[in-house]
Computed example of a mutant assay.
Amino acid sequence: MPDTIRQIRPFVSAVLLTLLGAALGACSGGDFGRTRESMRSDDMHRWLGAEVTASVGLRPSQFQLTDEERQLRDLAYPLIEPPLSRPAWKSVFGDYKALPSPWRQKVVFDRTMYGRTLIDEPHRSHSSRYAQLIEDVRNDTTRFEPFFASAIRVIDLDKKRNASMARVSALSPKEREDAVERMQENSLIIQWVQQCLEQRVSSYRWALERLVIQAPDGMAADADRLIGELAAQTANPPVQAQPPYGRAVISKG
């Protein structure tokens, strides 16, 4: 019997190590919706500029991002990514993907998507659905001020950049092009966020209306108040990116 036990122990240890390795591997994607570390980099959101300029027939700048421009893109992504767009299991694995600009012809905004996802996802009660809606609206409200504070700084610096070009000695055509393209990038990213905020308000209202008729609850008043606050902020942003590009955004629902 002791010999048998000694033979079994290495096998059991190997199995346990294999299971532990698999568990750790599953966690490598990040937890609590965070992006896996291997996906992180200082310029992980640089693609926003390339995507938004390409979608309107412009070229992205080849200049390196400044600290302010990098922060603008980092703060923009959470407001661009649609709420509830990632299933819970994907959030656990830190799913991260590039998103199409709203100027892409194939992009269709469905204001019902958020509400249908919220209602269809398993919840312990309708109260938890209201709580999720309230949390999402609050998150957007919290992100609003930091993003637009960053946008104000970037636009102010772009104005100085534009004024300085006339005084730069021996400015090459390529340098001028890259400077202009970077200013266009920054402006378009801000407009992208503005459009997404308008869409989010529309989606939240649709979701709340459906929750109210399916499961009336006192929490609806809190949700309605918060959506109203976000709508007021969105309708009066502290900065307007110029020049505005046509809002050829298809909507349904």
Rank of each mutant, 00 (worst) to 15 (best):
M1K: 14
D3F: 12
D3S: 13
I5P: 00
I5D: 01
R9Y: 10
S13D: 02
T18W: 11
L19A: 15
L20D: 03
A22T: 12
S28M: 13
G29K: 00
G30E: 07
F32K: 11
R34N: 15
T35Q: 06
R36N: 13
S41C: 09
M44T: 10
R46E: 15
R46K: 15
E51W: 01
T53P: 02
T53I: 08
S55T: 01
V56Y: 02
G57D: 09
L58Y: 04
L65Y: 11
D67E: 14
E68D: 13
R70F: 02
P78T: 00
L79A: 04
E81L: 14
E81F: 01
E81T: 03
L84S: 09
L84H: 05
S85N: 10
P87D: 08
P87G: 01
A88Y: 08
W89P: 08
K90N: 02
V92I: 08
V92K: 06
G94C: 01
A98V: 10
L99D: 04
L99T: 04
W103N: 05
W103K: 06
K106Q: 15
V107F: 12
V107C: 01
D110G: 05
R111T: 07
R111D: 12
M113E: 10
M113P: 00
G115I: 02
I119M: 05
E121N: 13
P122V: 03
H123K: 12
H123I: 02
R124H: 06
R124W: 09
R129T: 03
Y130L: 03
I134K: 01
R138L: 12
N139Q: 12
D140P: 00
D140E: 10
R143S: 11
P146G: 00
P146W: 06
P146F: 06
F147T: 00
S150T: 09
S150H: 02
I155M: 11
L157Q: 11
D158F: 04
D158M: 08
K159F: 05
R161L: 13
N162Y: 13
S164K: 09
M165H: 05
V168H: 06
V168N: 04
L171I: 15
L171A: 10
D178W: 15
V180K: 07
V180E: 11
V180L: 13
Q184K: 09
E185Q: 12
E185A: 03
L188F: 02
I190D: 02
E198T: 06
E198C: 02
S202Q: 10
S202L: 12
S202W: 07
S203V: 04
S203Q: 14
Y204W: 11
R205A: 07
W206K: 01
R210I: 03
Q214P: 00
A215M: 06
G218D: 11
A220D: 01
A223D: 08
D224R: 12
D224S: 14
R225K: 13
L226F: 05
I227L: 05
E229C: 02
E229D: 09
E229K: 00
E229W: 00
Q233W: 11
A235L: 14
P238Q: 10
P238D: 11
G246N: 09
G246F: 09
R247E: 15
A248T: 07
I250G: 04
S251L: 11
K252F: 08
